[in-house]
Amino acid sequence: MLTELAIVAATLLGPVLAVQAQKFLERRRVKKDRQTEIFRTLMTTRASGLSSRFVEALNAVPLEFYGSDKQLKKINDSWKLYLDHHSNVPTQEGHENAMWGQKRIELLHEMLILMAEYLDYDFSKAQLTSDIYSPIGHGVAENQQEIIRQGLARLFQGEFSLPMKVTSFPETAQMHSTSQSDE
């Protein structure tokens, strides 16, 4: 009788437990896929910190790498340090600004290393820091766009005006007809 009850229970509960286990594994896989996509985006855009894709991925870190796991806490702590560093941007160009930029890159690399370890990628710090292609032209274009953006903002805010040099005045039909009748 006990054996028969066990068989009935296993027959009824087996499929339910199998479906629940499958759902659990699927949720875990989907979460890992989202984390991997964030890591991938941060890696592929790490040379262009102003890229909207980079910023979106960076903002998704605390959401997708949330948890009580030790490694997840380290990732979030690293993310927070990186974010806090951005609230202390030097206002003037020069040595202080260059040091700030170097520290920003170091903090980003530390976060990427932690993510790589968590996601079972075997990247060394050297690979993360030097194995990157970023054409000089992209940096130049990004700097020029920033100069143009700041200049237009200053113009629209009335901080300066455009210098103009008038070289000639357009002739109107009336001025032209008046000069012909005088002849």
Rank of each mutant, 00 (worst) to 15 (best):
Y82P: 06
H86S: 04
M175A: 14
P163V: 11
T45Q: 12
I75G: 02
F39N: 04
E26H: 12
N76A: 02
A126K: 11
Y121W: 09
S177L: 15
A141N: 10
A10G: 09
L13Y: 04
E142Y: 07
A98L: 08
P163H: 11
D77E: 09
L152C: 09
L155K: 13
T167Y: 14
E26Y: 13
Q35V: 01
V55W: 00
T172W: 15
L155N: 00
M115H: 02
I132N: 00
D131I: 14
Y121M: 14
V19C: 00
P170H: 13
D182H: 13
F156I: 08
G14L: 08
D77Q: 02
K73E: 01
G158N: 10
N59M: 09
R46F: 10
E117S: 06
Q127M: 14
S78C: 09
L63C: 01
A6H: 03
D122R: 15
L83W: 00
E171C: 11
Q22L: 07
A98E: 09
K32S: 05
R34P: 07
E171W: 06
E96K: 15
Q20A: 10
K73M: 06
K103C: 07
L17F: 13
R40W: 06
L152G: 03
M111W: 09
L155R: 09
S181D: 01
L42D: 07
Q180G: 00
R154N: 12
R154E: 14
K103F: 02
I7Y: 01
G139Y: 01
F156N: 06
R40S: 12
L50W: 08
K73Y: 01
S168Y: 04
A57V: 06
I75S: 03
R53Y: 11
D69I: 00
M175W: 12
N76H: 07
A60Y: 07
V89L: 05
T11Q: 04
N97V: 04
Q144N: 09
E110Q: 10
A10E: 01
E106V: 12
R29M: 07
P90K: 07
E171I: 15
L58T: 05
R149Y: 07
E26D: 13
H95K: 14
R46C: 06
P62Q: 03
L13Q: 04
E183Y: 15
S87F: 12
V140A: 12
K125P: 00
S179W: 10
V89T: 10
M1G: 02
I7L: 03
A98F: 12
Q71G: 08
V61P: 00
R53G: 08
P163C: 10
M175R: 14
